[in-house]
Every structure is written in structure tokens, then in C-alpha cells.
Design a binder for these strands. Sequence first.
DNA 1: AGTCATGTTTGCGC
DNA 2: GGCGCAAACATGAC
Length: 276
Amino acid sequence: MPELPEVETYRRFINEVAVGQTITSLDVRDAHVLAVPEDELRAAVVGRTIAGTGRLGKNCFLELDNGRLLVLHFGMTGDIGAFRDAPDAPRFTRVAWQLSDSGLNLAFIDPRKFGRIRLADSVEAYQKAKKLGPDALQISAAELHQKLTRRRVFVKPLLLDQSLTAGLGNWIVDEVLFQAKIHPERLGNSLTEKETNALHEAIQLVLKTAIQHEAHYRHFPASFLIHAREWDDSATPGSDAHTYCPRHPKTKIEKFYVGGRATYICPRCQPAPAAA
DNA sequence: AGTCATGTTTGCGC
DNA sequence: GGCGCAAACATGAC
């Protein structure tokens, strides 16, 4: 789940539930998701008050009252939850921390354990250490244009590159390319300013729409490609209506791999580039 | 049983 | 350093 809109939704949840409260204890159920030694993490967070929250790309920050940050990255299957008593902890809770006032526990949930919890001294230090570009909601059209057109690489892997801009994941990039009507295998340096502007607008549209719907993709507008992804099969068992382009009811959405990642396009909306 | 997966990192060959 | 590709990580869902 966790691309930028999911992480923003988690951040808002944490903001509601935890800001102003003190972390009274830390329960590490599976140290695999820790990128810092457990003792160090415990010493850094227990007794600290959560002053606020932040986000950069797919990274969520809990700002501690001494200025340091607890950084959450959710990998491919991470989630946030809350529970009151230990037996009620959600399945796959790997780490939990208790909050002073409410007595609630925040749970870092992650079945596949690709997520990581770490510490940072500041957003800037973390951004530099992880080589993260500007957040996908913050990058300007001019910077996006400059960064894309400098490279002789397929545009899809470029948009997925967190050092170019941070927060776009596999399905969002497909959605952005569909909305901007650009084929994922167009080379960065072949894009016109008009096209990079369309990409910039599509990024804003897709991210804002997704955040508005708290990343519940089944509630997204019918004009979105996301309904063509196979995960939507369960919504209409036996029907393949969702595998057609929202703009071309007779054109089937195509699936193939770009840069090793499953990719969905409408072949009419997103014409393939001429062979090099 | 085998295949696929919303992310990131590393290694290899050119 | 750039690029394309593959694998690895660890596990659940279908």
C-alpha cells in the first residue's frame, strides 16, 4: 500500500492520535524492521514527547521534543494501527509504542518486513543520507522538466527514482503516465516542455485525488486507470469491464514490464515511441 | 505448487 | 558515473 498518499494518510492518523503525548514504552516484537539497535531506539524515544509529524516522499516522521526524528518507512506492505491492550494488537505488528495520555499503543504493522524504523537528526540530514529528491507534491514543473530531460532513460523508472522526486510508486506512476497520456518507455530526453508540464499536472492530480480518498483506490474516479489493475478483480468477479480504458471502452488495457515492474497502459492514449 | 506483489539496495557487465 | 538487468530481502494472497 504505502506510496505517498498512503503515507500521508498514516501521518494524519498519527498526528490525530499521538501528537502532544509522551512515549512511555517501546515494544519490539520483531527487531528485523529496526535499522538502529533496539537499545539505542528505546533510549532515544522513551520519555520523549511527540511534538509533531512530517513526511517526505514515502517517509513519515515523528518529531520528538528534542528535535530528533523517529523515521518510519513502510516498505511494500507496511501500515499503522492503534490498539489499547496487547492481545488486541493487529496481526503482523512488529513494533509498538505506548502513549502516555490515551494509553493507546501505536503499531508499526508490516507482514513482509521490508519496512524500516530509524532515527534521524533532522529532515535535511535524512534527506541527504538517503539521497531523496524533493517531495512529489513540492517539486516545480521547471525542476521536473530539467531533471527528466537530462536523462536518456525510460520515463517510468525516472519517475520511480526517489532521488529525482520522492513519493511516486509503481501504481501512481502508471496512473500519472496515463493521465498525462505518455508512454512509460518514452525517453526522458525526448519529452517536450508541454509533456513534462502535463506530467507535473498529472502528479498533482493523482496525488491529491488519492489523498482525498485516503488512498482507498476503489473510490477513485472512474477516469482513473487504477481500476484496471488486477487487484480490482474481486470488485466485479467474472467481469472484465474494468480492464478496458476509461476513455476508450473498446480498448483493452495492456500489461507488460518496464524496468522489471508491472506496467499498465492504454495503447491508444499512450502511443509507443518510434523505435530508436 | 507456482506466481505475483504498492519498495529499496546491491551487484554485475558494458 | 550512467545504464539495463537481475537478484535479494520475507511473506501473504490467490
